[in-house]
C-alpha cells in the first residue's frame, strides 16, 4: 500500500517537527561559536544542511523546494562565497590592521573579522551542499521518470 501524501509516516513527521528546529539552532550555534570553541563555518554549515535534508526526507521534496530551490541555493552560495572572498582578501591585503588572535578570550564578540568570515563560510557550505544534494536527487528522479 502506498501513502497518498508525500514523505514518510506520521511518527517521522511529528518527530521531525520537534527536532528540525533544534538541529538548525545547533548548526547556527556551532557557526557563531567557531572562533571561540571547536566548530566553525564548515561544521555548522553542514549541520544546517542536515536540517534541510531531514525536512526533505520526512515531508517529501515539494515542501522543501518551495522554501529553498536550486536557484535560491545557488544565489545564497554565491553570496556566501563572495562575502568570504571579500573578507579574506581584506584581511590578507592589510594584515597589520586585523589581528587573528583575539584580545578578549572566550567571548562571542571577539576576533574581529574572523567571526564574520565564519558566517560567510556557513552560508556558502550550507547552501552549496544542499544544492549538490538536490541536484543528485533530482538527477536520479529524472532518470527513473524516463524509464517509466
Amino acid at each position: 500500500m502506498k501513502n497518498k501524501e508525500p514523505g514518510m509516516s506520521l511518527i517521522v513527521k511529528t518527530i521531525t517537527r520537534f527536532t528540525v528546529g533544534l538541529v538548525l539552532v545547533y548548526g547556527i550555534f556551532i557557526t557563531l561559536q567557531g572562533h571561540v570553541s571547536p566548530g566553525g563555518g564548515f561544521a555548522g554549515g553542514i549541520i544546517i544542511t542536515l536540517a534541510f535534508i531531514q525536512l526533505m526526507l520526512a515531508f517529501g521534496q515539494d515542501e522543501v523546494l518551495r522554501k529553498l530551490n536550486q536557484e535560491k541555493g545557488l544565489l545564497l552560495a554565491g553570496i556566501g562565497a563572495i562575502l568570504f572572498l571579500v573578507i579574506a582578501s581584506r584581511i590578507f591585503l592589510k594584515p597589520q590592521q586585523h589581528s587573528f588572535v583575539a584580545e578578549k578570550h572566550f567571548q562571542l564578540l571577539s576576533a574581529g573579522f574572523l567571526s564574520l568570515s565564519e558566517i560567510a563560510i556557513a552560508l556558502m557550505v550550507a547552501a552549496g551542499l544542499f544544492v549538490i544534494f538536490l541536484t543528485l536527487v533530482l538527477l536520479i528522479e529524472e532518470e527513473e521518470k524516463e524509464k517509466k
Partner: peptide
C-alpha cells in the same frame, strides 16, 4: 579537515558521473 572537503568534492564529481553513466 581540508582533505576531507577535497575528498567530498571528488566523491561528488565521481558519483554524479556514475549516475550519468548509468543513465
Amino acid at each position: 579537515l581540508t582533505t576531507i572537503v577535497i575528498g567530498l568534492a571528488v566523491t561528488i564529481i565521481a558519483v554524479s558521473l556514475a549516475i550519468r553513466i548509468y543513465e
